[in-house]
Computed example of a mutant assay.
Amino acid sequence: MKEQFTTTVRVKGKGEAKARAFADALSHVQAAVMKASPHILLRIEPQDVEVIHAREAVRKEAFLFFFLRRERRTFSVELDVTVSVTALNLDKVEFVTSQ
């Protein structure tokens, strides 16, 4: 009934800081695992994280094209996260019909 397996999911995240981009990507791990597995998930435990892409985009902006110049940075990451999943397999549960 209770099963344990390992799977790898690919997630993406964006943010105005490096830590925010990683946190955004890691927050999508649970949804990606739930989408890929038909079982009821009990525990998702990250085992390994591999960075596929890490990008920084710099955009220059100014008020009225001349005043208050500044650079805005946006970070984006794409990660492969290997997770150990403990789940309930509902196919192995026997339901008894009562009348």
Score class of each variant (00 low, 15 high):
L64D: 07
A32Y: 00
T97V: 15
T8K: 12
R59L: 11
A36V: 02
L42S: 11
R43Y: 09
G15V: 00
D24W: 02
R59M: 09
L42T: 11
T82D: 05
T86C: 08
K60I: 11
E61A: 12
D80S: 15
V93N: 04
F67S: 04
L88I: 11
R72C: 05
R20M: 14
M1G: 15
A17H: 09
V9C: 10
D48L: 03
E45I: 01
F66K: 02
A31P: 00
K92C: 07
V49C: 07
V29E: 00
F66Y: 11
L64R: 11
V77C: 03
A32L: 03
F66G: 12
E94R: 08
D24P: 03
T74W: 07
A87P: 13
A36T: 04
T82A: 07
L79M: 08
N89I: 04
L79H: 03
A87Q: 07
A36Y: 00
L42G: 13
L26R: 04
A57S: 13
K35C: 07
Q30I: 07
D48I: 00
R55F: 11
K60C: 09
K18L: 11
M1I: 12
K18C: 09
V96E: 15
E56A: 08
K12R: 13
A57M: 08
D48P: 00
S76I: 02
E71Q: 11
D24H: 05
A31W: 04
V11C: 03
L42V: 14
M34P: 06
A62G: 10
R55C: 09
F66T: 05
F66W: 10
F5I: 03
A17K: 12
K60T: 14
V83W: 02
L88K: 10
V33I: 07
Q99I: 15
E16D: 11
K2W: 14
E71C: 03
E16V: 08
K92M: 09
V96W: 10
R20K: 15
Q99C: 13
V49Q: 04
A57L: 13
F75P: 01
I44R: 03
T7Y: 06
A19S: 15
P46I: 00
G13I: 00
V81W: 04
E78R: 00
T6I: 12
R70H: 09
E94K: 13
H28V: 00
V11H: 04
E16K: 15
